[in-house]
Design a protein around this nucleic acid. Sequence first.
DNA 1: GTGAAAGCGCTAACAT
DNA 2: ATGTTAGCGCTTTCAC
Lengths: 336, 336
Amino acid sequence: MKKRVTIRDVAAAASVSYQTVSRVINDRPDVAIDTRLRVRRVIQELGYQPSAAARSLASRRTRTLGLITADFSDYFFTQVIVGAEAEARRMDYFFILGSTERNPSDEPEYLRLLAEREVDGILFARPSTEHDSEHVLSLIHRGVPLVTTNYYIPNEQLMVVDVDNVDGGRQAASALIEAGHREIAMIAGPPSWKSVKDRTQGCQQALAEANIPFEPSLIEHGDWSYASGQDAVERLLRGSARFTALFAQNDRMAIGAIHALRKAGRAVPEDIAIVGYDDIPVAAYCHPPLTTIHQPMAKVGQVATRLLIQIIENPDLERKEVLLKPRLVRRETCVC
Amino acid sequence: MKKRVTIRDVAAAASVSYQTVSRVINDRPDVAIDTRLRVRRVIQELGYQPSAAARSLASRRTRTLGLITADFSDYFFTQVIVGAEAEARRMDYFFILGSTERNPSDEPEYLRLLAEREVDGILFARPSTEHDSEHVLSLIHRGVPLVTTNYYIPNEQLMVVDVDNVDGGRQAASALIEAGHREIAMIAGPPSWKSVKDRTQGCQQALAEANIPFEPSLIEHGDWSYASGQDAVERLLRGSARFTALFAQNDRMAIGAIHALRKAGRAVPEDIAIVGYDDIPVAAYCHPPLTTIHQPMAKVGQVATRLLIQIIENPDLERKEVLLKPRLVRRETCVC
DNA sequence: GTGAAAGCGCTAACAT
DNA sequence: ATGTTAGCGCTTTCAC
């Protein structure tokens, strides 16, 4: 490690004061064009790189964003991250990574550390559950720029970007109904998730519109995992209510469900039609290929990040909610 | 945003010099115990948070690590990230995220930006391909602490943590051989990857040990995707060489292969036995459940991060290579 | 359009 | 065990 080239070295070599160099690297307008060019050339020659730490210290901006994640096994959120990261790069920001994978209770400590790093804003790429909004509220009230995906707090001015889960639930159920089914079971996610409530509501709307009575015993809950989808179907099969179709609120549970149905000797889609949710990559390659609801996840990350940066650069921006649209992908587990 | 509480405020409130406060927050030994306690209490009361930027500027250490990733759809690497992130947290470091997902040629620019941020070290959680080692070499020669997973550069003192791919390839082929197969096809990954060469080599070793002649036309290459596994099988089926078993070098291609075999009317494992590689979550839930090679991916991330931090804190550490062991998971696509 | 001066909040010798 | 003195490399007034 040789000694660092600083703004002063550049200034000396270009025969200007170092403040002028500062203006050049910050693209300020008030520099004569030939001075600017000369400084730029010297920067090149010397291989000068501005120090992010020094800039942050002086400017009180870090151009760093915090990313809160909970589950790297969930395709939805990893794709959100991909979109978010690309957008941050475009805008010249970086994400600092914080996965609370193992232990959600780490989150407050984690947010403290992000505060210490003086991140300019925080993106929550994780779902809301019931008991955890307290420290998030405190962030909001401290005025920390914040955008969430799939994370809601009732009655708060929170900027959230999400996919329309009511609509998705409705599309899923409608596909099943159009295929002629009237006894439709559902494997929902954990009841505390807002997306679960929304998808369930959308499903029930579709049922109601088709004058299909709602049968509570045909709803089971899973935890989004393959195994929980399998378990849920086994419970459904043991129950007394018959069903010819199944809406699983994510693809992993749908695939777990297919697994259990096959074991039980039920053919998919002949005996039981299925619609999943997410359109994970394997959905097209499992057997049978899964009819499912596609969500524009990378887009969610991209839009969320863009909004976050907008808030950072203009704190008075009005908080709003952006809902993107999901769409049905017809494959073979539910055909019209 | 109210004014920041600084180390001087704490010092004043605790009636010590601010350097003493610095010692306390850095857990230096040379502070009297009651002074330390008093300072700690004041820190609590005032809600003081040290400024990471100021610390970095003064200490020339950022406690920030760069993470280079290429593919968030690849289970191997996302799990490496999970393990890496957890370990970084434990050691009080953060990762800055850099996915070169879309465009690998972004990487040099990305590394430049990481240099600007003065990251203390860089973790490459991406595979090596053939043409990209130039800028990585320049990092090594500049003495930037660096650890890679699955990334090799011939003849360089590079710290790499990986899973033993030769052994994995051998285990996969052996499982097939033990099940009685002698005509074994292989769907390899892209030929330029070292892991592909190693898995192939391991496979051929096992073949040689069993006195099975090697049939070059039974090797096809894919790009790790489901679709490429499907295509590879279609080519294999069109070829003249017969086979009763298939080793796919990752699970996604294995699942794509099963898909194609089913379409072609071949039963798995009755007509064609299959062993995959990775043990992705869906492997246990696809049909039939996939026999595959499990890799301790989170562990790779954890070990790599720990080594990286060791290098940072002790630059003279000897570079070494850590190879973790994969293991065969027997499911239903290849049974003895 | 450009320069001078004053910090940003902290760590790191060195002194005491 | 604690305080003193210098910066770290930059941005930001404010002059000129």
